[in-house]
């Protein structure tokens, strides 16, 4: 089980929780579980999100390993110019 931090405006779709517990060992499982547990999060997840693992930001990296020893933060999908 990992703890995932949601940014402020997402919390309304996850029972107003800042941190949610998810049974996942990688990025893909985490997204699937979040969508399953909190279906209102699904539209945002499908439009794209990033994941910060111990401060390193990942985009679309489904097989990124995560564990309960990591700090895991959901972030908007990164773009640039």
């Amino acid at each position: 089980m990992v703890k995932v931090k949601l940014w402020g405006s997402l919390r309304q779709f996850a029972d107003d929780q800042e941190w949610v517990d998810v049974d996942a060992s990688n990025f893909k499982e985490l997204l699937d579980q979040l969508s399953h547990l909190y279906p209102a999060l699904r539209p945002k997840i499908e439009r794209g999100v990033s994941l910060a693992v111990d401060g390193v930001i990942y985009r679309n990296a489904w097989f990124t390993q995560i564990s309960d020893e990591n700090e895991i933060v959901l972030m908007p999908y990164m773009v640039g110019g």
Binding site: W7, G8, A40, P43, K44
Partner: peptide, 20 residues
């Protein structure tokens, strides 16, 4: 408007985010 926008706002408001 994306789902994060509260009801009752102008339809021109398409997104809302909060961090902190």
């Amino acid at each position: 408007a994306f789902e994060s926008v509260p009801a009752g706002m102008s339809q021109n408001v398409h997104s809302h985010v909060e961090f902190g």
